[in-house]
């Protein structure tokens, strides 16, 4: 039963990934301008023979279909092609940049979850109280502040005002150690965490208000268990299904969505590499990074489906 469910979802996952690759390819294909023009220096543009030679060399003269399947076929073997500009393999660029982006995404999700769970649970427990109403105001505000505005505010507060943290740059754990690394990561991560935190605190609150009305919560009370224990051990898990999905979606979104924050804090992440690829019209780089980000998003979503199975034993039977 369970095996069938998993197999079915795997088939769906593969189909989605295939669609993602096709759309990514076609979209980049539709970008205006000839990639060759971006490769060559302006003075070489008159030499038509040379342009044709390079076009042949890069096999850009093949049909769209041929190039697509060649690209996908190579990608399946882990080869996303080489940058036309720098000759760097796209997969190397990703490998080089992904640790920063991944760490930011993880840290932001962790921060959001760490705060959203107790805030949501407490507001549900004290539904309608002053704390609940104040928190509701705060989450609304947090939701309406774009991440980059928060980022700029954090820089003003923690760098300019108090000078506690650096405003830009990145310390690798391998070079400078964890503390130095966190010092550069915490502000961008906090900027990224703000919206997911607000959304999830609200989701958990709403779901938990429903759960707290369940009979099994009353029977847990009648057993003499303490309120905090009931909230965390009995009510949280059934109330977290929506939040888990949204966390997964947000995490997937963060992989690609750190572009602006990475730019503000001048971090060497995937987002800044993608941006520079776009500026340079580096087709292979854009294609490869986009496919990678989209794949991560889709896979994380599928993983959330499996998390459901762990959270709610009743689904395992269906």
């Amino acid at each position: 039963m369970l095996g069938k469910v998993i197999a079915l979802r795997m088939v769906r996952l593969i189909a989605t990934l295939f669609a993602v690759s096709l759309i990514t390819f076609l979209m980049v294909e539709q970008l205006p301008g000839d990639p060759i023009l971006a490769i060559l220096p302006p003075e070489a543009l008159d030499d038509l023979e040379n342009i044709e030679r390079i076009r042949k060399e890069l096999r850009l003269d093949d049909s769209v279909v041929t190039r697509y399947f060649r690209w996908v076929g190579d990608a399946l073997q882990g080869d996303l092609g080489k940058s036309y500009i720098t000759d760097q393999p796209v997969s190397d660029a990703i490998k080089d940049r992904i640790p920063v982006t991944l760490e930011l995404a993880f840290l932001a999700t962790f921060l959001a979850a760490l705060l959203a769970v107790p805030i949501g649970a407490f507001c549900a427990y004290r539904e309608g109280s002053r704390v609940d109403r104040i928190m509701s105001g705060i989450t609304t505000t947090a939701l309406s502040i774009p991440g980059f505005v928060a980022g700029i505010f954090f820089i003003w507060l923690f760098t300019l005002k108090f000078n506690w943290l650096p405003s830009t740059g990145w310390n690798r754990i391998s070079d400078k150690g964890l503390i130095a690394n966190l010092k550069t990561a915490i502000l961008p991560a906090a900027s990224l965490a703000l919206a997911p935190l607000a959304i999830n605190a609200r989701l958990i609150r709403a779901d938990m208000i429903g759960t707290l009305k369940e009979d099994y919560v009353l029977s847990a009370r009648a057993k003499g268990l303490r309120d905090r224990y009931i909230l965390m051990r009995h009510a949280l898990r059934p109330s977290s299904l929506t939040a888990v999905t949204v966390f997964a979606l947000q995490f997937g979104g963060l992989i690609g969505g750190t572009v602006v924050i990475e730019t503000i804090f001048a971090l060497p992440g995937l987002g800044t590499r993608l941006i520079s690829g776009i500026y340079q019209r580096d087709v292979m780089m854009i294609q490869g990074i986009t496919l990678f980000i989209a794949s991560v998003y889709v896979i994380v979503n599928a993983a959330a489906d499996f998390l459901y199975l762990a959270l709610d034993p009743r689904i395992r039977r269906r």
């Binding site: 009979d215 099994y216 009648a222 009743r314």
Partner: peptide, 18 residues
């Protein structure tokens, strides 16, 4: 639970499903 306990009407809903 210790001095006074209660058995509820509907065992389908009074036990925590997870």
């Amino acid at each position: 639970g210790q001095e006074i306990a209660m058995v509820f009407q509907d065992p389908m809903t009074s036990l925590n499903p997870v």
